[in-house]
Amino acid sequence: MLAKLEERFFLMMLVVVSLAFGLVLEPFWGCIFWACAITVIFYPVQQRVLRLIGDKPNRAALITLMLCVLIVILPVLAIGAAFIQEGISFYDKIEKGEINPAGFIDSIRQAFPVVTEFLSRFGIQTDGLREKLSSGAVEASRLLAKEALSIGQNTFGFILSLCLMLYLTFFLLREGHHLVELMVKALPLGDQRERLLFSKFAEVTRATVKGNLVVAVVQGALGGIIFWLLGLPAPILWGVVMAFLSLLPAVGAALVWLPVSLYWYATGDWVIATILVAYGALVIGLADNILRPLLVGRDTKLPDYLVLFSTLGGITLMGVNGFVLGPMVAALFLVFWQIFIDEFQRPHKPE
């Protein structure tokens, strides 16, 4: 009786201490999450480096981390800086009246009266839409300028978080396999099940981050290039916006280039508008339709509709991190149910 009481009390304290430790690490969950994601993505690279230089884990982890910084971190920081600069410039143009968001709706409404009549049948008034778009554009640009200023003022905090992420990534690259084996021994789910879950976690993380980022970079670059060639202001800004929106499967970058093409149709620039529509549908859209199923759906072994809904739900609940965590939760959901069906719902053979 005393032994059972001691065991229960120990398990209770184990849960309490684990929750307290999680709360202590709560301010750094973003750093920890992305350190784990980068480790999973670059772990195959680290293994190749190990084979090339021999059994030198410290040196292999350092080389892999330097490759990560050169390939991913520095380009992202450069694009982010250009995005912030163009965002502030775009806000200044709206404040000075050089860009009029309300005129955007007026031009489309005058050029396409059928659309106005169609929307009015469903109780949607374009006057209210115009005001909302104008105020929304001002608020969005003001928020962007404010966040840019905040990032500039909190440069030390941002650099500290980045350094902590890279520091943890180094140790995870060096000792990650030992930590996985330790967790397999500690968790009471059965070693075979735990290895399957960890394998699925790595598979989904690698496919989701790598696949979505490749699709985002390709679509954002293609969108920014065509906007620059057609002379639209702030092409880097709109390219980055299309890259972020491309995290939403099926719609994505079309939320930017389609309204712009409608505006050019409305203002009489038929040639430019037709070029943008053809380029958006055939080039930008085709990149999404080809790359996303190959890089995300195939590697995660998730249906396209499940990838779409889990990505949208993850972004809604968890922000930017949700585009990885959403499909990961969906994949683990399927794995747990597959284990349940295979192990608990098998028909029992008669003795």
Rank of each mutant, 00 (worst) to 15 (best):
G87H: 05
V16E: 04
L168E: 02
N289I: 04
P113W: 03
P188V: 06
I290Y: 10
M12S: 09
V214R: 02
L11E: 12
I94S: 05
D342K: 14
M13G: 04
A111C: 07
G223N: 09
W29L: 15
S261P: 06
L182V: 06
L302M: 14
A221R: 01
F90M: 13
L14K: 10
I73L: 10
R59M: 15
P235V: 02
F198H: 11
L295Q: 04
M165E: 09
G30S: 06
I32T: 12
V217P: 02
L189V: 12
L276I: 14
L119F: 13
S261C: 11
L247Q: 01
T64Q: 06
R51S: 14
V296M: 00
G30H: 09
L23Q: 14
G136A: 08
I108T: 05
F21E: 05
E175R: 14
G231H: 08
N212V: 00
Q46H: 09
V114R: 07
V24T: 14
F227W: 03
F244V: 11
K56S: 11
L286T: 12
L295R: 03
V49S: 06
I99R: 02
R346V: 11
D342S: 12
S107E: 12
A243Q: 01
A250I: 11
F344T: 13
E351S: 06
R195G: 07
F333W: 10
L306M: 07
N154P: 02
E147A: 08
I108Y: 08
M183V: 15
P113L: 02
W270G: 05
L308Q: 00
G297K: 01
Y305N: 10
W238S: 04
C31T: 14
M183S: 15
V115P: 00
L306F: 01
D269Q: 14
V256I: 12
L179K: 06
L286P: 00
V256E: 01
Q345H: 09
A20N: 06
G80D: 13
P350H: 07
I32G: 07
E343R: 12
G280V: 07
K210Y: 14
D288H: 06
E131A: 08
L162M: 13
L291W: 11
V69P: 03
V260S: 01
M183E: 11
F323G: 00
A61S: 12
M13A: 09
K56P: 05
V15Q: 07
F198L: 11
Q125N: 13
A331E: 00
A111V: 02
F28D: 06
M13C: 06
G224K: 04
V324E: 00
V114M: 07
L168T: 08
P57H: 07
P303S: 11
L166Y: 06
L52Q: 10
L23W: 08
S134E: 14
W228P: 03
L168M: 13
I226D: 01
S141G: 04
G297T: 13
L119D: 04
G313A: 03
G30W: 04
F158N: 07
V329E: 00
L276A: 09
V260H: 02
P75Q: 10
V240L: 08
Y43D: 14
